[in-house]
Design a protein around this nucleic acid. Structure first.
Lengths: 374, 374
DNA sequence: CTGAAAGCGCTAACAG
DNA sequence: CTGTTAGCGCTTTCAG
């Protein structure tokens, strides 16, 4: 109705362009361009005109048009960050840290960050829909987080789109940046082993993420190497429904307690599992860490708030982000695949593990008669 | 070295353009354009050529160049999502949900989502740096989350950039989408009141977010209205260091226990506070909910895993996202400010609150002699 | 040191 | 129904 809009969709009418600045500063558009975005050393513009142009541009509140620049330069200076659709809420903390770091690093490289969360399938059996960037060339490269459908990877490769797989644990030798899951699991096991624990169990929900299988594998290897039993019946619990009821901690705890001999140490798949187990054991009158030591992984915020404060490993979001950003930008520049990188967690010794003292292990063999209660 | 690169920065050499498709399909570029992106009803292209063009485009793996489209159309079809720099980790869960919903909704509107996390100040006293979108016109509108610097708001307005303030609780009558903090606080208080509780306390870290003050205010009003004491000394604890030590729960718990008369119900500022308090009380031998009922807010994942399961309110990320996306797109279309909207949380009755029974309130007045211990 | 000119890839009048 | 034409705003030779 009350519109003096032109046929252009929604461009604000009085947008200032390069030419407006040029006219005002009484130079040509080319000069303005050189002043404003010419390579630092290579521009041959007199100090005098440069300063005049800059002053005028600032005064007129000039903002270059990103699309025009991108069209001309052949590069958008934008990187996509791809997330699969159905991420578990408890990984979101790690991934928002990752996103924050990536965003800040890209900003420093004068790139923007386009978030692409895979849309949910509209109907069952519909071929997976991918984010539309694939269909309109809107980014220079993509960082794919957590898990990436084979079909998408196929597309990326076919389109020669630079990409990095971040925390996907695929094991591919190229273009991957991962936390070193083998290392962190190995460290966790060695830590409780050195504390004197021998009945050690690996506990967690099985997830569809490869890190779960990697950790399980390291656990089995470790126990075999030390000549200890691997307690194979306990370490895998899969029940999506219990997520909604919030009782998967109880489920795992019960399966652990059903063992003939109770373990003295638990290496949990992640902090959420560890915390849920601490709650569940406490409800059952089992004190942590006195009776069972627990190690978590990733250091979510609650791990510091819970009691006992959870011994765990810090998720190296900062270094993962740095490596991923460098890798994708390198690829954008060179169009050559990059060698995969693994980044180590950082150990945080807190209160959920104790030395397995001689006295305690003896006491455990005595009949339960020391206490005041039945 | 081994480069047959042109002077363009990083454009993949053999990119397929509209003209390639046109040549191959033996039509003009305009026709291809109309077929591929013409408004559904308004295109006058014979079914025959349309199908031929589409087939060729698919076969050649044609992807339109987003920058060229944007330049021509005058709109990038991108929305920015702005986050301030120093967000507390525990809000990140709520905000990653928000981001996920916003991303999916925008995808449906064929818009992309550019994330802009304010970079940290490089030096003290440096004038705030804002994300570069402001300086290159890279988005059609911005959704600002949590908190927005006055100077940025100024810029946005001056540049006539459509914007929405999401969960900033500024109280502005226009362009805001917020959770209804007054409502959720009122509901929490009324809930424990109806359960018979009279000694009710509001506990939380004070934060720089306005929602804290809003909640405190509602608390004071509520207590005054009911003729109850507002326990003013307890509800505000500020100590950034205790975040790092993870002991702010203990701090608040101790201040609560220092009261002459212990409260029977706590309305916590958020779930993290509530959970930290539950842990701290338990360490001090106070059972929850039997001795103290607690209500949280926002329903983070751990609230369901902790014991007792926390009674709380679900953060309405989905509806907030929907409202914000609609509001910003409406503004992009009309360039007219929109009326602010408040969205309600959803109550989740779980196990952390109990009816204050007559018997219990009597027992509390008797000398502590019923138990078996000192 | 500065300006004229060409054109990135696409879309939307307009003419046929 | 289809093609021709004219730019969107910017950068980059290339001449002067």
């Amino acid at each position: 109705m009350a519109g003096k809009e032109s046929n252009r969709l929604s461009t604000p009418p009085g947008r200032i362009t390069l030419h407006d600045v040029a006219r005002e500063a009484e130079v040509s558009a080319a000069t303005v361009s050189k002043v404003l975005s010419g390579a630092k050393g290579a521009i041959r513009i007199s100090k005098q005109t440069r300063e005049r142009v800059m002053a005028v541009a600032r005064r007129m509140n000039y903002i270059p048009n990103a699309s025009a620049q991108a069209l001309r330069r052949g590069s958008l200076s934008a990187i996509g960050l791809y997330f699969p659709f159905g991420l578990h809420p408890w990984v979101s903390s790690a991934y928002s840290q990752l996103t924050r770091h990536i965003s800040i690093l890209l900003e420093e490289e004068r790139h923007s960050l386009v978030i692409m969360i895979n849309p949910p399938p509209r109907k069952k059996a519909e071929p997976a829909r991918f984010p539309s960037f694939l269909y309109n060339q809107g980014v220079d490269g993509v960082i794919c987080v957590h898990q990436v459908p084979e079909a998408l990877l196929e597309e990326l490769r076919q389109r020669k789109m630079p990409y990095v797989l971040l925390n996907c644990d695929t094991g591919y030798p190229e273009n991957c940046v991962d936390a070193d899951e083998r290392w962190v699991m190995q460290q966790s096991l060695q830590y409780v082993y050195d504390l004197g624990h021998r009945r050690i169990i690996f506990a967690g929900r099985s997830t569809s993420h490869p890190s779960y299988d990697i950790k399980r594998e390291v656990y089995v290897e470790f126990m075999k190497r030390k000549g200890l039993p691997a307690l194979p019946d306990v370490y895998e619990i899969t029940d999506p429904l219990s997520d909604e009821r919030g009782d998967f901690g109880e489920k795992i705890a019960e399966r652990i307690l059903r063992q003939a001999e109770r373990p003295t140490a638990i290496v949990a798949y992640n902090d959420i599992t560890a915390l849920a187990l601490i709650h569940a054991f406490r409800d059952r009158g089992i004190s942590i860490p006195e009776e069972i030591s627990i190690v978590g992984c990733d250091d979510i915020h609650e791990s510091l708030v819970a009691r006992p404060r959870l011994t765990t490993f810090r998720f190296p979001a900062d270094r993962l982000a740095k490596a991923a950003v460098e890798m994708v930008l390198k690829q954008v520049r060179t169009h050559e695949p990059q060698k995969s990188i693994a980044v180590k967690h950082e150990f945080l010794a807190r209160d959920s593990c104790v030395q397995l003292a001689e006295s305690r292990s003896h006491r455990a063999k005595r009949p339960a008669s020391a206490g005041a209660f039945k």
